[in-house]
Design a protein around this nucleic acid. Structure first.
Lengths: 221, 221
DNA sequence: TAGTGGTCTAGACCACAGA
DNA sequence: CTGTGGTCTAGACCACTAA
């Protein structure tokens, strides 16, 4: 793997260029084909190579960045920064959901769903607002859980298996209420993460996380 | 792999629980140990398992989301949406860099560096502002390249090998100039990606991408 | 120190997709 | 049709680290 990486890096193998097949490389490098396969597969996952059956392996044209973002619990995220965590439930009620939500959940317009809003604090200062809709038609027992102590974020992650999710990163101007909760001015630019979590084909929950001003999500390439 | 995934998913193996070791699993499932290893390694990469030598393999406590974001060329990103791409160079000059930049580049304050600003358009409407500083002390030949036709984004990605990068996602209120370029109002919340690219220990380039209002970066979990 | 995952080998068959 | 990567096997030694 190191040798192949070296050849790519030194441009001995140029971007777009086809490299020898696994069998040949194994002979040349004096190792088993499985070993070559493992190395090339890993490099392909890293985005340095493009592999296709029959067509062979090529050096990726654009060393396309693949950033892996970890999406931890909000509590873990805050504690990882060495700050104290505090949680306030702002509201938990069954109410008619907006169209954007019922549509994702494949329910008729105006269906009543569980709506949970909460504020997470780091070192006694507002960190993020959690605004969540939960599809109680799939999880009716959830109407009896109180999120006063344990956040919905945490409860769901620990108790609800899911198969996949959609995430959107964006920005929005703070509404009056958001500004108040996050101790900032109306219209301040806030970083927003929206997430929908699915189990098979059914949407379980949608959440919007509105972060305090200046918050940045960091990752490595 | 499917069988292990099933056991995790059905809670037959609960979060935090230790699962049999590779050798035992191989016997139980009637396959070779390497095959078990491959499966468990993949599941660990997906975040479903935690593996440690001697300590064994456990079901991950928090099915921690790992979203992989692809960071493509801006042109590719726009063309992938089926829109036409257009590029305008706004400025390209050697000038004293702000402290935040010289610090990252490990240069003395006030060092003169190449500063490139450009606007990328999708379907004739502003898409993103690219504001870039390039460490010309490492790439002196770059002072002679014109980015009038080909964006620095594209040129660098194709010509400059790098080992790693830092990415930050955030939000900012549009400055007057940004608002004008993106055809919006001052103070509108804009989604921002900042990236620093490194070769070994040396920072090559820093770029801030300020997207048009409403832009969202999407990915799957 | 011993148990676990990490990695390698030589050989084999298969599935896919380009030519 | 056929070359390529995808995957599997049985067996082996090693490196790390928790007990």
């Amino acid at each position: 793997m190191a040798e192949v990486e070296r050849r790519i890096y030194t441009r001995e193998w140029e971007p777009g260029q086809s490299i020898p097949n696994e069998a040949d490389l194994a002979v040349e490098l004096g190792c088993a084909r499985v070993t070559v396969n493992r190395a090339l597969r890993t490099l392909a996952e890293m985005g340095l190579l493009d592999r296709r059956r029959k067509a062979g392996t090529r050096v990726a044209l654009h060393p396309v960045g693949k950033a892996t973002l970890s999406i931890p619990l909000i509590r873990s995220e805050i504690e990882a920064e060495g700050k104290s965590y505090r949680y306030h439930l702002l509201g938990q009620q069954i109410e008619p959901a907006p169209a954007a939500v019922t549509q994702q959940f494949a329910l008729e317009a105006g269906a009543k769903l569980l709506h949970v809003t909460a504020l997470h604090e780091a070192d006694e200062t507002p960190y993020v607002i959690e605004d969540r809709w939960i599809n109680t038609t799939l999880m009716p027992h959830l109407t009896e859980v109180s999120f006063a102590r344990l956040s919905a974020n945490e409860w769901l992650l620990q108790n609800t298996p899911f198969t996949h999710g959609d995430i959107n990163f964006g920005a929005k101007n703070a509404s009056q209420r958001e500004a108040q909760l996050l101790a900032t001015k109306t219209d301040t630019a806030l970083f927003v993460i929206s997430r929908t979590t699915w189990d098979q084909n059914a949407a379980l929950t949608m959440v919007e996380l509105v972060f305090h001003p200046g918050h940045r999500k960091h990752t490595q390439l």
